[in-house]
Nucleic acid binder design. Structure first.
Length: 552
RNA sequence: GCGCCCAUAGCUCAGUUGGAUAGAGCACUUGGCUUCGAACCAAGGGGUCGGGAGUUCGAAUCUCUCUGGGCGCACCA
């Protein structure tokens, strides 16, 4: 609908110029918005306000002129009920009810496909997220990243992208050795030795569990000589499979698990450095090898190979991003916790230095999660090993509520997650509010079906005349544009807010009116409406990875 | 000290490329189930959009500055 009105306004400007009434036509950007007040119509444009100065005509006069031209345009009559000039010079559009009715039929026709488009069909996109080091279980902040990445992948698929989700595993470096040492210490402890854990050791109980497993299967086999390699590898694999299980339980699917070690094995890191060297951004200084990332907007140059010969993590990252592009992706998305935001500039710089346009890479930062219980913070300290895992949260409040809460806020604001509220099945809990709306609609459809009342080709949706019905239809008709915007901006939280609004309208409608009435024709028309509500609510919940139960 | 993010109702937060009187939920007060599910609905109060300056016909939105908070500033990962 917005598109049609915008086109109409463009045509108006062109016609105005042709007649000589206007000086400006084509290049004026056309703003269209939805007035907060119903009396101001379905859509409104401040076009006359912005154009008034250029044209040298008072806004209201200009608005009247535009409307008079508009009214003469052939195409306007098809969908516009009336046009008004209001306030300082706004042009308000009132859309014919038939447009809404047509839209409703279109939703029913398209079903689950409604709202989805093929705008970016043929484009490939890679989203990398979570990528937590396999040195411990996932905690709540990782859960937020998981929910975000998964929802984004669904959103992007809905506008046609071919999306792959990937988890990057840091299986190289000191941390693996440290992990091995940590487990080894716990292992010896199990045989009664008093052990001082290394200062940097991983201290969670999960390390003790792993040590117990080793003891159970192999007894004291590894006691005599410390074998970091074995302990590191064993711990890493155990933890990684825990992570995989948690993500699966959370309903988050990854298409690929990419090991940093493969980059080294296949010489990808040195190849990436070579590429940078060729483009002249690599130099040697102080015995180390540097990348001149400042040339691409970073605030300092970065070491990629230390003077002791070891490659830095950044070097792997450069190679990894090169590898992603080489795999044929048109766009890359990285989702990082706020504690990594300092790396954005250098990674983007590296990407640019390798000759890839930096805006093919989006880095989404999410702030951390404050876990609360009844409004009070839940103590979390990673250092002491006492932190709340994603698994614990899912087990306590369930997947649906956890996902909905994680996605309810803009990713760049910190998130308060109250376990008690998330568990409540009451109006304080937005998840149930939305799901309940779906359930109620399903319930009516069930009753209708039992009575043998079904929509058919003769169903006359033009009987839907109530203001609440028109508002519902309008809200439903916004869904395709919502998907486009949420996907374009990588902002899944918009779906949550849309759902809450739609659910509210559905609840109010449900409360105030009956769908099953004595009037069979009206009943069928209303069944059509709630069927459309069901389609959209389910579709939107799907985008969030939240279930749409038919009974609760 | 430098950089990034955030600041909107008592609390938690929405707010589209700058547009009309800034919205919702919770909390608080009051009312509503013989009805397709009350996990719901209705009514009410509540705001210098952190402060200040600027750009503009017009600013929560853009620019600058200050304050407060979070997070980064390694030849760590």
């Amino acid at each position: 609908m917005q598109g049609e009105i915008t086109a109409l306004l463009k045509a108006t400007l062109t016609e105005g110029v042709r007649r000589g009434d206007l000086k400006f036509g084509e290049d004026v950007p056309i703003v269209l918005n939805m007035p907060p007040q119903k009396e101001h119509g379905d859509y409104a444009t401040p076009l006359a306000l912005s154009l008034a100065k250029l044209e040298g005509v008072p806004p209201r006069v200009l608005a009247d002129l535009l409307v008079s031209i508009l009214n003469q345009l052939e195409s306007a009559s098809h969908f516009i009920e009336k046009i008004e000039v209001a306030g300082p010079g706004y042009i308000n559009f009132f859309i014919k009810k038939e447009v809404g009715h047509g839209h409703l039929l279109e939703i029913l026709r398209q079903g689950a496909e409604y709202g989805k488009t093929d705008l970016f069909t043929g484009k490939k996109i890679l989203i990398e997220f979570v990528s937590a080091n396999p040195t411990g279980p996932l905690h709540v902040a990782h859960g937020r990243a998981a929910a975000l990445g998964d929802a984004m992948s669904r959103l992007l698929r809905a506008i046609g992208y071919q999306v792959d989700c990937e988890y990057y595993i840091n299986d190289v470096g000191n941390q693996m050795a440290l992990l091995g040492q940590s487990t080894y210490c716990r292992y010896r402890e199990l045989f009664g030795e008093k052990i001082e854990l290394p200062a940097e050791a991983y201290q969670g109980d999960y390390i003790i569990d792993i040590a117990k497993q080793i003891k159970e299967t192999d007894g004291e086999k590894y006691l005599p000589g410390q074998d970091d390699l074995f302990f590191g590898r064993y711990s890493y694999q155990t933890i990684l499979s825990l992570i995989e299980n948690d993500l699966r339980a959370f309903g988050v699917h990854f298409d690929g698990w990419f090991c940093e070690s493969t980059l080294h094995q296949e010489n990808k890191v040195s190849e990436a450095i070579l590429l940078l060297r060729k483009s002249g951004v690599v130099y040697d200084a102080d015995g180390a090898v540097w990348a001149a990332t400042t040339r691409y907007g970073d605030d300092k140059d970065r070491v990629i190979k230390r003077s002791n010969g070891e490659l830095t993590y950044f070097a792997s990252d450069i190679a990894y991003h090169k590898n992603k592009f080489e795999r044929g992706y048109d766009r890359l998305i990285d989702i990082w916790g706020a504690d990594h935001h300092g790396y954005i500039a250098r990674v983007k710089a590296a990407v640019a230095a390798m000759g890839y346009s930096a805006d093919r890479l989006d880095i989404v930062i999410h702030q951390l999660v404050n876990l609360l219980r009844d409004g009070k913070p839940v103590a979390m300290s990673k250092r002491s090993g006492e932190f709340v895992t994603l698994k614990e949260v899912i087990e306590e409040v369930g997947v649906d509520a956890t996902r909905f809460f994680f996605l309810m806020r803009r990713s760049d604001t910190s998130l308060d997650f109250d376990l008690e509220i998330a568990k409540k099945s009451s109006d304080e809990n937005p998840v149930y509010y939305v799901q309940y709306a779906h359930t109620r609609v399903c319930s009516i459809l069930r009753v209708a079906k039992e009575q043998g009342i079904l929509m058919d080709k003769e169903t006359d949706v033009s009987l839907l005349m109530l203001p609440e019905e028109m508002e519902l239809i309008k809200q439903l008709s916004l869904y395709p544009d919502l998907i486009k915007m949420a996907a374009a901006r990588l902002e899944p939280h918009r779906i949550n807010f849309y759902l809450l609004e739609l659910a509210g309208m559905a609840h109010r409608y449900y409360y105030k009116y009956r769908v099953m009435t004595e009037d069979m024709a009206l009943t069928k028309a209303r069944l059509a409406l709630i069927s459309a509500i069901r389609i959209v609510v389910k579709s939107a919940l799907d985008l969030l990875g939240v279930s749409a139960p038919e009974r609760m």
